[in-house]
Write a protein that binds this DNA or RNA. Structure first.
Length: 423
RNA sequence: GUGGGCGUAGCUCAGUUGGUUAGAGCGUCGGACUGUGGCUCCGAAGGUCGCGGGUUCGAGUCCCGUUGCCCACCCCA
């Protein structure tokens, strides 16, 4: 068989896995301080959860989903993002029912059928946070702050990230604006690429996302939503900015920032970095989705959240020269001189571990010399040597690997002796 | 879906105009007078040269196909 992982997936070997754990722990601690609680939702959902939530016309739904039928003929889809499932779960369990609110975070893999490249995988990991049942602009500022603080906490220098901010309007002002953009595109049709022309009817705002230089140039003259926000949206947006100012979170207004999921309303944001991501630039992003719960048939429930990518965050950290997650270091290595004393070494290591120390030993009857090499490689500060001599006198030898001092201790006292020597 | 680059030991790579037993560094294992590490020295193990065809007396080296990886487009985390 082919031992290689499927295209677009990777094994997270210990070095990467440690970074994953570091990021997860950082999030658990930080998000907890902001009042968020963990939630785990299924890795797959009924396909409709995503098609209705994310939007039929989006790239994700139209060409990137892992959709399959189970043995009963249900259409299921591996989650391409985390928000839809969390909102669905909140609806199912009434987590934000009747005016209550919920603050939830999750971490885990997402799946999108794409051509892999730097910072882009078919299975990729995200941490996300969602607030359901909160409409106030201070909530937007709070969750944006959390996102920025997370990146700071793991070690991305502030001067390497940019927070982009925009408002997408709501059902009161977006439809009219959308129509204006559509008209604009139709008018400029000849100057825009084929894809953008197609977008005119399906999702005109996405034309702002086109990287084609000519399209970018043309779209630069397109009407901006900022100039046609309804009063409520404009007010909300201003308030979000004021709250960010209050806590000193720097942002750059990006009136053309349009994110790839249809459920966003009002606030959208994205954190970009300049180094390490190849042709990608966003390490995290999110926004408000005040109509998503209704889309699922639930009561009107405002919501907002963000997601950040593990892989991209790690790339940004590496580019910034941040060393994440050192390998665990062995405190003490237990060396056996010959086969007769190996049971004693085995027991000694077990006792040291039971007492809370990190102990290692050889199981392959290697020479004493190679056991020392191993001890050195593992970074052991002490080596407990057990041999015929020691056993005869009921003692063990304890060598300090840094100073090379060797002392003896009674076998029965080895735990205490090692602990005191470890300081 | 489209385009470009690349696939040689566990890892990073060399392999001359096609020519005999495919190399190096690192890593691993063993050894350098009797039970002791980091440096040094010696030695060993380890390779279907991605896979399949073809050209040739002969191919890791050339041609075709295929597959995988990487990077980019698209879009996003």
């Amino acid at each position: 068989m082919d031992a290689r992982a499927p295209k677009g997936t990777v094994d997270m070997l210990p070095g990467t896995a440690r970074a994953w754990e570091f990021m997860t722990k950082t999030a658990q601690d930080l998000f907890g301080r902001y009042g968020f609680e963990p939630i785990y939702t299924p890795l797959f959902e009924h396909t409709e959860v995503f098609t209705r939530g994310i939007g039929e016309a989006t790239d994700i739904v139209s060409k990137e989903m892992y959709t399959f039928e189970d043995r009963s003929g249900r259409s299921l889809t591996l989650r391409p993002e985390g928000t839809a499932g969390v909102v669905r779960a909140a609806l199912e369990h009434g987590l934000a029912a009747q005016g209550s609110s919920a603050k939830l975070y999750y971490a885990g893999p997402m799946f999108r059928y794409e051509r892999p490249q730097k910072g882009r995988m078919r299975q990729f990991w995200q941490i996300g946070a969602e607030v359901l049942g909160a409409a106030e602009p201070s909530t937007d500022a709070e969750i944006i702050t959390l996102l920025v603080r997370f990146f700071e906490s793991v070690g991305i220098p502030l001067d390497r990230m940019t927070l982009l901010l925009n408002s997408m309007g709501d059902e009161a002002c977006r439809p009219a604006y959308r129509e204006r953009v559509r008209q604009f595109i139709l008018q400029k049709g000849a100057e825009l690429c084929e894809e953008c022309n197609r977008r005119a009817d399906t999702n005109p705002l996405r034309a702002f996302d086109c990287k084609n230089p000519e399209c970018v140039a043309v779209m630069a003259d397109a009407p901006l939503l900022r100039d046609s926000l309804c009063d409520e949206c404009a007010e909300h947006y201003e308030s979000v900015k004021r709250h960010l100012d209050l806590v000193g979170i720097a942002y750059v207004e990006a009136p053309r920032l349009v994110r790839g999921l249809d459920y966003y309303t009002r606030t959208v944001f994205e954190v970009q970095v300049t180094h390490g991501l190849g042709s990608q630039n966003a390490i995290g992003g999110g926004g408000r989705y005040d109509r998503l719960m209704q889309e699922y048939g639930g009561p009107p429930t405002p919501g907002l959240g963000f997601a950040l990518g593990f892989e991209r965050t790690l790339l940004a950290l590496e580019a910034a020269g941040v060393d994440v997650g050192a390998a665990p270091r062995t405190d003490v290595y237990v060396a056996a001189v010959d086969a007769d004393v190996r049971p004693a070494a085995f027991v000694t290591a077990a006792r040291l571990r039971d007492a809370g120390m990190a102990a290692s030993l050889d199981h392959q009857a290697r020479s004493l010399k190679s056991q020392f090499k191993q001890a050195d490689r593992l970074g052991a500060r002490l080596v407990v040597v057990i041999g015929p001599d020691e056993l005869a006198s009921g003692q063990v030898t304890i060598r300090n690997m840094d100073t090379k001092d060797e002392t003896r201790a009674a076998v029965d006292d080895v735990v205490v002796a090692v602990r005191s020597r470890l300081g």
